[in-house]
Write a protein that binds this DNA or RNA. Structure first.
Length: 110
DNA sequence: TGTGTGACTTCTG
DNA sequence: CCAGAAGCCACAC
């Protein structure tokens, strides 16, 4: 074990991602902010990149600030869009999501 | 100790 | 809308 998988920051990031409702999405920056780590969007990406395949966490609901799926090697991007579409999230011709409609707003829940 | 890299964001032109 | 620059930080070398 070891590494930073047990780091409290990592735990908060994972807990925040786990709170994103079905059919809604959040940006890396938003997740970082909700996790108490404003300005640490890259850290969110780093943590998600370490997630094991088949994780029960809704990692696919995390998008870049433009509403696009972040590029990275592997089947991740395609799988992410497939999962989101299965939840009813609509993508435009540019492969982006209209954050105005499905962005997660945690405020009403608190 | 320094440099490069990356599932990022925001500001400028 | 696209490119570049700057800010950010963990990690590998």
């Amino acid at each position: 074990m070891g590494k930073t998988s047990s780091d409290p920051r990592t735990q908060r990031i994972l807990a925040t991602v786990d709170d994103i409702p079905i059919g809604q999405v959040a940006t890396y920056g938003q997740v970082a902010c909700e996790a108490g780590l404003p300005g640490r969007a890259r850290l969110v990406g780093q943590v998600l990149a370490e997630l094991p395949r088949g994780s029960c966490l809704p990692w696919h609901r995390v998008l870049s600030a433009s509403g696009a799926i972040s590029s990275r090697p592997g089947p991740g991007p395609a799988e992410q869009q497939k999962k989101l579409r299965a939840e009813g999230v609509r993508f435009n011709r540019s492969g982006r999501v209209n954050l105005k409609d499905c962005a997660w707003d945690p405020r009403p829940s608190r």
